[in-house]
Structure formats: C-alpha cells, structure tokens
C-alpha cells in the first residue's frame, strides 16, 4: 500500500491530522488514563480527597460474587443475542439468495430495522409484550399464564434478549447475503452435480465458505450485545428485576453515576477496556485486516 507519488512538506499534513489527534487525546486517551488512575484510588468518606490504594479496587471487585455473576450474566446474554440474531439472519439470507420475484422489495423490507435505535427496540417490544397493555402480553396474562417481566427475572432476560437480537438481525442479514452472493455459482453447481442437496450442501459447501463472514459477525454481535444494548436494557428493565438483566455496562453506569462509587466504577471501566482491547486484537489477528500505513 506504499504510494510512490507524495506531496512534499510536513506542516500541512500535521495540521490536517491535528483535529483528530486533539479530540482523541482530550476525549479518549486522557479519560482512559484517568480511569486507570481513579481505579487505583479511593475517595475518603467525606469526599474531601482520594488516596492511592493500588490494585485493591480490583481485588475487591473480583472478590465480589455479585460482580463475577454480572460477568457471567453478560457473557450468557452476549452469546444468546449473537446466536439468535445470527441464526435468524442466516436463515433469511439463505432464502433471500434464491431466484425469487420481488427480491429487491424483500431486501428493503428486511434491512430497515438497522436504523432503529437500541432504546427504540425496547419501546417497540414493550408494546408487544407488556403484561398490562401489550398486544401479546395482555392476552397471555388473561389466559392465566404467569408472564410479567417486572417481577420474573427469567421473563425479563427473555425480553431483553429478544429486543436486542431483533434489532441486530438486519445487520447480520446484509452481511450474510453479501457473503452468499460472493460464493461463485459454479461452486454451487458443482456441488449440485455431485448430488449434494439441501442440508448437506449447506453444511459441507456453503457454511465453510461463509465462515469468515460468520467469524466477523460473531465478533461484531458480541461487541454489540456487550456495549450497544445499554439503551435497550435501561429502557426496559434498568437491569432488574433484582439484578436479572444487569450487564457490565449497566453496572458501571449504576455504580458510577447513581451510587457515585468512583473508584469501583473506574476499576470496572478498566476491566471493560481490557475486554475491548482483547476482542479488537482477536478480530484483527484472525481477520487479517491490514493495519500497516
């Protein structure tokens, strides 16, 4: 990617990268550094100052079974959302890739939910499933079924997984469809000649060829479920009932902004940052995105 023809001088290019660098320093690197610093301090009880406590916030964090539970809950939530959103999207993409009348219309009608805000997905599903006013929720309750996500943790978990994956299906669908369209027709034809049909053709030919797309989507979906679903969960349950739907980001927000535990919340932020760095590293390592300049 090295280019032969270049423009001369260094003042102009430095001026051009400066705005981006400035924003990065002020709003990304500086706060991230502060997070690391706060995470190693503790506010004194009167809020007059803070003392350096080393790694004790982290030790406290991981000794707290509630935090460990939140990590596990977040992992389960992320994988549930990814699995649901990817399976439905793959099924839709497989049929949308066939020779059909009205393919373009179907595609339009299947991609628009990409534009729905995570918090809006929560609102939409609230009107579907609320036990008192929901289109489906109210009849369920009237029929005597015990459905109430305000009370039952399991119901709440089901609802946030549903609303979060619903919104992500479109994104996955777009990528699966693009992946399927890039499989040469001749490969499919050859498989057909060899007598591979239906499920077998899917399992032995199509899925292996789609595996780069799948891996990419898995990473994107996990990151989405971990970080972008704050709005969905906060609007629906605020992490409750109890802590049934509390993910790591919900906990950082609650501990930091509502309970004002700066040290503990910062330690959680640092843990999250390490998580994102690990995911990004894995993503770049396995997807071979060229990062050389």
């Amino acid at each position: 990617m090295e280019r032969r023809t270049l423009f001369q001088g260094w003042k102009l290019p430095v001026a051009l990268v400066l705005p981006q660098l400035l924003l990065t320093f002020v709003f990304f690197l500086w706060p991230a550094g502060q997070a690391v610093w706060y995470s190693m301090t503790q506010q004194d009880p009167f809020g007059l100052g803070s003392v350096f406590v080393g790694l004790s916030n982290f030790r406290e964090l991981f000794a707290d079974p509630l935090y460990v539970h939140t990590i596990l809950r977040t992992l389960v939530f992320c994988f549930a959302v990814s699995a649901l959103a990817m399976t439905v999207a793959l099924a839709l993409a497989l049929v949308a890739n066939r020779e059909l009348r009205g393919r373009a219309i179907y595609r339009t009608l299947l991609i628009w939910p990409y534009a729905v805000a995570p918090a809006m997905a929560a609102i939409l599903w609230l009107f579907m499933l609320d036990p008192e006013i929901g289109l489906l929720g109210h009849p369920l309750v009237k029929a005597g079924l015990p459905w109430d996500y305000h009370v039952s943790g399991l119901d709440a978990q089901f609802l946030v997984v549903l609303a979060s994956s619903w919104k992500q299906i479109s994104y996955n669908f777009i990528f699966f469809l693009a992946g399927l369209q890039s499989i040469p027709q001749s490969v499919i034809e050859a498989a057909r000649m060899d007598g591979a049909r239906g499920w077998r053709r899917l399992r032995t030919i199509i899925l292996p060829l789609l595996s780069p797309t799948m891996f990419f989507l898995l990473v994107v979906n996990l990151v989405y479920a971990a970080f972008d679903t704050f709005g969905t969960i906060w609007a629906l349950t605020e992490g409750g009932p109890g802590k049934a739907t509390e993910t790591l980001v919900i906990k950082v927000y609650r501990d930091g902004m509502i309970n004002q535990d700066i040290g503990g919340s910062s330690a959680q932020s640092v843990v999250l940052m390490l998580g994102v760095i690990a995911i990004t590293a894995v993503q770049f390592r396995f997807m071979g995105r060229r990062t050389k300049t």
Partner: peptide
C-alpha cells in the same frame, strides 16, 4: 493514536 479510539467506546469510560 487514532486507531486506539476503536478500543475506547464511551460505554467503557463513563465516569472519567
């Protein structure tokens, strides 16, 4: 430095 911002979405650095 620009690339690093990929790793620091607002969700992970709320308080600071």
């Amino acid at each position: 430095v620009i690339f690093i911002t990929l790793m620091l979405p607002p969700e992970v650095r709320i308080i600071p």
